[in-house]
Design a protein around this nucleic acid. Structure first.
Length: 290
DNA sequence: ACTAGCCCCTGGGAGC
DNA sequence: TGCTCCCAGGGGCTAG
């Protein structure tokens, strides 16, 4: 599932490929992914727009277009933004790049933007959770879902004071607080598990009861883990792919995520998985005491 | 105003 | 082999 490092990878890759290109037309077969505006308006208004900058905000991808428009894409669980060439056969996109194996994810392409250089940006999504929103710049930027987002953990001005401030009054379990996009943006289930294991903090600890040194450790590993994951182009443990369909390399750096029953790399104890709401937390009960 | 929990969705894996 | 059931989970939404 794409978290900050995966989305950052996608944004950086797309920057090199599609800035300056024009969107010629659109194809789709799952209109539910396009939340707004109405389909007819979307198809009509996006045609001919030129791609300016591309930015990441939390796990959202913001594609700035001419005419002061923004295309917002959230990949949610299984969404991929791909750059390639596809042909529509029997209403399904088939890769048309010579020598490129037809990837499984291509069966799940539900939206294609045709560019003026003959290439395409495609949104594939097995579970159809992804979200696409298009509209005037000021309208998109003032969407509640963007405005309520917490600070970006990798930004230089996100210092320990800001982190402390963000955790203050948060009675919830630290893992859930780390994943709360209104507290800090970009962290999901995988990296929260890893951060807390490295910091030796039990995922169920109430956030506002953490001592300063503990908070410092978490703060340190938030930056360290996310930076390293960005460098390694993300984690492909479920099915993250970059725009060329390639996997990230952080998966073999994982210490606890999806390693239930395996030995803790630090103390050789057994890694546990506990339900936390509708999510699961992976941790070492020996290293991470409640 | 908060939070806990359901829901969206579909493939993969376990169990029989 | 083939069926059923459970699981993965970001975030929007609702009920309490």
């Amino acid at each position: 599932m794409p978290e900050l490092p995966e989305v950052e990878t996608v944004v950086n890759d797309l920057k090199n490929k599609i800035i300056g290109r024009k969107i010629k037309s659109v194809w789709f077969d799952a209109s539910k992914l396009i939340k707004r505006p109405k389909l007819a308006v979307f198809v009509k208004e996006i045609r001919g727009l030129k791609i300016g900058n591309i930015k990441r905000r939390a796990k959202n991808i913001l594609i700035y277009l001419s005419s002061d428009k923004i295309l917002l894409v959230h990949q949610k669980m299984t969404g991929h933004l791909l750059y390639g060439k596809w042909l529509i056969r029997n209403k399904k996109p088939i890769s048309s790049l010579p020598g490129v194996m037809r990837e499984k994810v291509n069966d799940y392409i539900h939206l294609i933007f045709y560019l003026d250089n003959g290439w395409q940006i495609a949104l594939s999504d097995l579970r159809k959770f992804a979200k696409v929103v298009f509209g005037p710049k000021d309208e998109i930027e003032s969407l509640e879902e963007l405005k309520k987002l917490g600070p970006e953990p990798l930004e230089r001005n996100f210092d320990f004071k800001k982190f402390q401030q963000a955790l203050k009054d948060k009675k919830g379990k630290i893992k859930q607080v780390l994943m709360d996009q209104t507290v800090i943006s970009g962290i999901g289930n995988i990296y929260s598990d890893e951060i807390l294991w490295l910091a030796k903090i039990h995922p169920f600890r109430p956030a506002n009861q953490l001592k300063d040194p503990e908070m410092k450790k978490i703060f340190h590993f938030i930056k360290a883990v996310l930076k390293k994951a960005v460098k390694l182009r993300g984690t492909s443990v479920s099915d993250f792919r970059d725009p060329e369909g390639k996997s990230g390399h952080y998966a073999n750096q994982l210490y606890v995520y999806q390693r239930e029953g395996e030995k803790c790399p630090r103390c050789q104890g057994a890694i546990k998985r506990l339900k936390m709401g509708s999510r699961s937390a992976h941790f070492c009960p020996n290293c991470q005491k409640l």
